[in-house]
């Protein structure tokens, strides 16, 4: 297969990927490269940063400048890259355990600063790489390797978390809707300020198996009844929304200044003060 979108952006020698059959990470990665292809971005101006985990292995397959960093510290490294060279488009590929638990502090502080990063979280509700332990987004009463009687910790809603921390673009999508996911990622890449995209995906070989949700195909079809768009959800009661996943844009505003812009402004002011 030659001259196609995959050859253009993916490293052929590293294929097939290390992900299990039916893993949602591949669909998210595919949506990202389709978004970049449609936007016709300069590959020299894009940097991918990732932490540790199944999702973070995505950077190994990309023909871009990539950085595979410490567990949870992807956003910290990305902040450094962006501050050193604000011309670059910095994309953080991270998982739910990586960005919400171990790197949770970095996530909320990046949102508070509103630095121009695009954080794409591949949320599969458990720690896949280490064997399926529960993560901060594991739904209540679901089974994982470390919650054999059902998880009794209430999960984080990552969109609510980033929204309240001050992110200026927050959206959620699912692997069942890859075309809509591509459109949301395009908007997130265009946004000036911190954009957070929560990509709800499946882990059929660990989370799906322990919760008896069937194979990858059955898990994919489960999304059909569970996904509700933001506009639909406004007409529904709280009881109806109980087991649903709301997808769409939650926040899209530009009322706050971006962090590198503030930094540049401060340097200009300091120089002016020094001349006087």
């Amino acid at each position: 297969m030659k001259n196609n979108i995959y050859d253009k952006y993916l490293v052929e020698e590293k294929m097939p990927t290390m992900w299990c059959p039916g893993c949602g990470n591949g669909i998210v990665l595919q949506s990202i490269i389709r978004a970049i292809d449609e936007m016709d971005l300069d590959p020299e101006k894009i940097v991918f940063v990732s932490g540790i985990g199944c999702s973070s292995r995505a950077v190994n397959y990309l023909k871009f400048d990539c950085m595979h960093t410490n567990h949870g510290r992807a956003i910290a490294f990305a902040t450094g890259i962006k501050m050193a060279n604000p011309e670059l488009k910095v994309i953080v590929l991270t998982g739910d355990g990586d960005c919400a638990s171990i790197g949770g502090n970095h996530l909320i502080h990046a949102c508070r600063r509103n630095i121009d990063l695009t954080v794409i979280c591949m949320n599969n509700s458990n720690y896949g790489m280490t064997g399926g332990q529960y993560s901060p987004t594991t739904p209540l009463n679901s089974f994982t390797k470390t919650s054999v009687y059902g998880s009794y910790e209430p999960p984080f809603d990552l969109c609510d978390l980033t929204k309240s921390a001050g992110a200026t673009y927050v959206a959620r999508c699912a692997t069942y809707l890859p075309v809509q996911m591509k459109d949301i990622i395009k908007k997130a890449l265009n946004h000036h300020g911190l954009s957070f995209v929560d990509c709800a995906s499946d882990c059929p070989s660990l989370y799906g198996r322990l919760n008896r949700l069937g194979d990858a195909g059955e898990m994919m079809l489960r999304w059909k009844d569970r996904l509700v768009s933001v506009t639909q959800s406004q007409k529904m009661s709280e009881e109806e929304l109980k087991d649903k996943v709301i997808w769409g844009e939650f926040v899209n505003k530009s009322d706050r200044m971006e962090y590198t812009d503030i930094y540049k402004e401060n340097i200009r002011r300091a120089k002016e003060a020094a001349h006087e």
Binding site: N4, M15, T17, G24, G26, I27, Q30
Partner: peptide, 9 residues
Amino acid sequence: FHCPDFAIL
């Protein structure tokens, strides 16, 4: 669009 292994075109 749904293929996680980039196998379908």
